[in-house]
Design a protein around this nucleic acid. Structure first.
Lengths: 354, 354
DNA sequence: GTGAAAGCGCTAACAA
DNA sequence: TTGTTAGCGCTTTCAC
């Protein structure tokens, strides 16, 4: 019986061997041509390229990965791709990674610890060269498995680094200061905050920063004007309804993210309050829809493009031997003024219905 | 010098060989344990499992893939993950695929033909076992490369099948009929349509269906009330502004998707027209935000969950030898009534400002 | 300038 | 019940 060397791939895609046979050269030559090696005769190279094109040959990355020990895959773990912030992050991450001839392996945890565990396992099985984790609560056993396997990791807002683990954190205070000063210039004195859920580290962090900023600019905080909220439209909607029940209502609110700001504006509409006029609103993230709603949303931009660059840079540095230590990176917010903020209304008691 | 068999993996994750050495068995036994083979002694199995756990060993899928010839990866190509419809599709696709111990390879084309080409190449390199393409315009050379490599493909709304290529199409006419009847019951007579961009097959299809439905229910169509629109918030916004310039304005509009419906409602607000009261609006897709805006959007639901199931089922069937032929699947729309539709206003000349 | 051959991590047929 | 071994597609040293 003929050796497998000679059979023209019974089924499935062509292999390098087949191309080699068709071009009358060895697989080594094919490989050289694919890598644009100069050590190959121009004519031979051309002939090989023709055969490749004619047969739509595509090299099998599995073989390459196994041989080289490098998968060329980077993992990305997000809690919820339905949130435009994460969707945009995923989009930029994919683009960046693909532009470097690598792949993205995406995992969506839906905030579930057991999904986090499955995700890390999947990533390790596929031999990812690094993992970006945009999930603030990382379940312990997953974390240990990753450390054990010494895969570079970059986390978001955990403010903790260790060997093989870097972190990118949002430094909110300068941005929030700008936001509050912007409101102050419009004459706002009573400013509320929507967000800050006990136990959720990012949102607690943002609430803490808000308190610090208000102290810095010497504005008092009414306890009842800081309302916990999920990072969703519904979360903001509910929180704003709670806020609206308060006497001596605020004239402006900062929200922990854009989605909750949008929800808050919906709640205001139902209550007959005009956002941007009766009550100013500021979001955080600057997702695309900020400019597509009415009124357009003033917000603190957290650039996904920049974040992605930081994450990938951090991963790259962890991969280089001398940097295995782990580093802390910071990213700033930028105030983007739009229509949802304006002069504070003359007196506090705005009627509920116009 | 000792054979590589004996060295305890200098660096990087442990391999099966290492675990075998630690447990004092051969790699074959490790493999058997990992696959829950019954042919292995209970004690040995336990010992192996302990070693695996203790060392956080994770098998390398690259090896498995190369050996078995099956990558366990399914490709998904979408034009724009920032569109909530696609984001939701990706989410369900990922979940479904991962639940079957497989992976999703995601590509985002941003509607660019050259990205489509790169994407298919990436997919073929990684040896995907099937590709779901949610991009209606498929660039020819990519398509041929895929066919050449005989990888199962399922497309959306192309209404064309061939060997190795199945299609899932949205059958809009019953849903649209329900939508128009719903408006008729509210007394609407002049109904417009936003969408239908020349050259974009999905949107042309939807416009055609709209015309057919209007004919069926014996309602006239004013040429000027069918306005082309991109499938985005901005597209709907612009289209609605065009529509509002018309004399003898419609009292209701169907939109080719939810995003354009949302944009249309924004445009109405700016013009002082109250959506759902002065002018009824119906979307298509039923993305999550439909219930999170004011007024909530009446829409024709296109279930992503169901679509994903169909796509994966179609891919699975193409993989089985006897089904290589390619099949046409259909998916229906379901009318979901919310607040954006209501009784037609008494007379047509609604004032532009209240 | 080109080819032969070994080996990456894993599986499965076969041997013991 | 367990081990030995060949080989999946590719790269690369070494020999020619």
């Amino acid at each position: 019986l003929p050796k497998s060397k000679d059979r023209p791939s019974a089924r499935g895609p062509l292999k390098m061997r087949d191309i080699a046979n068709l071009a009358g050269v060895s697989t080594a030559t094919i490989s050289r041509v694919l890598h644009n090696s100069t050590l190959v005769d121009a004519d031979t190279a051309q002939r090989v390229r023709d055969v490749i094109r004619k047969n739509s040959y595509v090299p099998n990355a599995t073989g390459t990965a196994l041989k080289s020990g490098r998968s060329g895959i980077f993992g990305l773990i997000v809690p919820d791709i339905t949130n435009p912030f994460f969707a945009d992050f995923v989009k930029h991450f994919e683009r960046e990674v693909v532009d470097h001839d690598q792949e993205m392996l995406l995992a969506i945890t839906d905030h579930l610890p057991e999904e986090m565990q499955r995700s890390t396992r999947r990533m390790l099985m596929r031999g990812v060269e690094g993992i970006a984790i945009l999930e603030s609560e990382i379940e312990t056993s997953s974390y240990e498995t990753m450390l054990h396997n010494r895969v570079p990791i970059v986390t978001l807002n955990r403010l903790t680094i260790e060997p093989c683990v870097s972190d990118v954190a949002v430094h909110a205070s300068s941005g929030m200061t700008a936001a509050v000063r912007h409101l102050q210039k419009f004459g706002h004195q009573r400013i509320g905050f929507l967000g800050g859920r006990p136990g959720q580290s990012i949102s607690m962090e943002r609430e803490k920063t808000f308190r610090a900023v208000m102290k810095k600019v010497k504005l008092p905080i009414d306890k009842a004007s800081v309302v916990p909220a999920h990072f969703t439209i519904e979360g903001g909607y509910n929180a704003m309804n709670t806020l609206l029940e308060q006497p001596n209502r605020v004239t402006a609110v900062l929200c922990a993210n854009d989605l909750s700001a949008i929800g808050a504006m919906n709640a205001m509409r139902y209550a007959g309050i005009v956002p941007g006029k009766d009550l100013s609103v500021i979001g955080l993230d600057d997702i695309d829809i900020c400019t597509m709603i009415h009124p357009t949303l003033t917000t603190l931009r957290l650039s996904r493009e920049h974040m992605v660059k930081l994450f990938l840079q951090a991963l790259a540095r962890l991969s280089q031997e001398p940097y295995q230590k782990g580093e802390q990176f910071m990213i700033e917010l930028e105030l983007i003024v739009r229509e949802s903020t304006g002069p504070a209304p003359a007196r506090s008691g705005v009627s509920k219905k116009k």
